[in-house]
């Protein structure tokens, strides 16, 4: 007991910086947002009235939120499965002892360091309808590339954003999958090989089950990223094209310059808290869904 108290002053001193920063910039804003979420405020934020906790369900059921939720979910549906499959594919391809394989691994991981701004603008350049490379090269097959341009058509804008997101996440997915593959004990493959399993069977019976922890992790991260997409929307479509809301995700609804709730701190807070809950629910569902199918090795 005495010893425990002896350590208390230094412990507090060492924890103060982190505690203060996390308190002010993470815990306080979360608590404050939860509080604001059930209030209605005027644009000065000064005069707020309590609107009750069912304000949350009102916001949730409001058209703007529902629309944004659909966009966010669609984005997740477009990016997560494709991102996963591509990541696994690249990892399997690169998980061979060949001369020079390191170069390919570096190339496959290269997008990991690209931030959302660079990745989005790269695709902005490529997809530019008049002078973009893709428009020129591929418009015979996909006329929309040139007219009106993928990002300018409400039907293709979100898939185009998804394309940029998938590419930007590819390096991350590849690195995690690669690490997952390399932690598979080689003797598992060898024993499957000796048992006469072909390469496809080895993949489905050994590789995939052993990769489940990595797949779960990547699924959760990619889903969260999709739900939290802001930068790519701000840079590629501003929630549009034009006045449509075809790419207005929940974060863009909250933070976008042209957002209809831009000056409504109560609704913004409620939407932010709902977004947080959504991410938690999805992560929890994914952990449950994978559940016992995840093999954590020995």
């Amino acid at each position: 007991m005495k010893r425990k108290l002896r350590d208390l002053p230094p412990a507090l001193l060492m924890l103060v910086p982190s505690l203060a920063l996390l308190g002010v910039w993470t815990i306080y804003p979360l608590a404050r947002a939860i509080d604001y979420g059930h209030k209605r405020c005027d644009s000065t934020f000064r005069n707020c009235t309590d609107a009750g906790w069912d304000r949350y369900s009102q916001v949730f059921q409001s058209k703007q939120f529902q629309d944004a939720l659909m966009v966010s979910l669609k984005l997740a549906v477009m990016t997560v499965p494709i991102g996963l499959v591509l990541g696994i594919g690249l990892a399997v391809l690169a998980d061979k002892h060949l001369k020079g394989i390191g170069i390919f691994r570096t190339i496959f991981s290269s997008t990991v360091a690209t931030g959302v701004a660079v990745a989005s603008l790269v695709w902005f350049v490529l997809l530019q309808p008049q002078i973009g490379v893709l428009a020129d090269l591929l418009s015979d097959w996909f006329p929309k590339l040139k007219n009106p341009g993928l990002l300018n058509d409400p039907d293709t804008a979100l898939p185009a954003v998804a394309l940029s997101s998938i590419w930007a996440s590819l390096g991350f997915t590849f690195i995690i999958m690669m690490a997952g593959l390399q932690s598979v004990p080689r003797d598992l493959y060898e024993s499957a090989y000796v048992d006469g399993a072909g390469s496809f069977r080895r993949f489905t019976n050994v590789t995939l089950p052993m990769l489940t922890p990595s797949i779960l992790f990547v699924t959760v991260v990619l889903t969260t990223r999709a739900l939290q997409s802001y930068g790519e929307i701000a840079l590629l479509t501003q929630g549009g094209p034009q006045s449509t809301k075809a790419t207005t995700t929940i974060p863009y609804l909250i933070y976008g310059n042209n957002s209809v709730i831009h000056n409504d701190i109560g609704t913004k807070s409620a939407a932010a808290v709902l977004l947080f809950l959504l991410c938690l629910v999805f992560a929890a569902l994914q952990f449950r869904g994978f559940g016992k199918r995840v093999h954590y090795g020995n």
Partner: peptide, 11 residues
């Protein structure tokens, strides 16, 4: 677990 996207409103 708390993402930036949630805290920016207040921050």
């Amino acid at each position: 677990l708390v993402p930036v996207e949630v805290t920016v409103v207040i921050n």
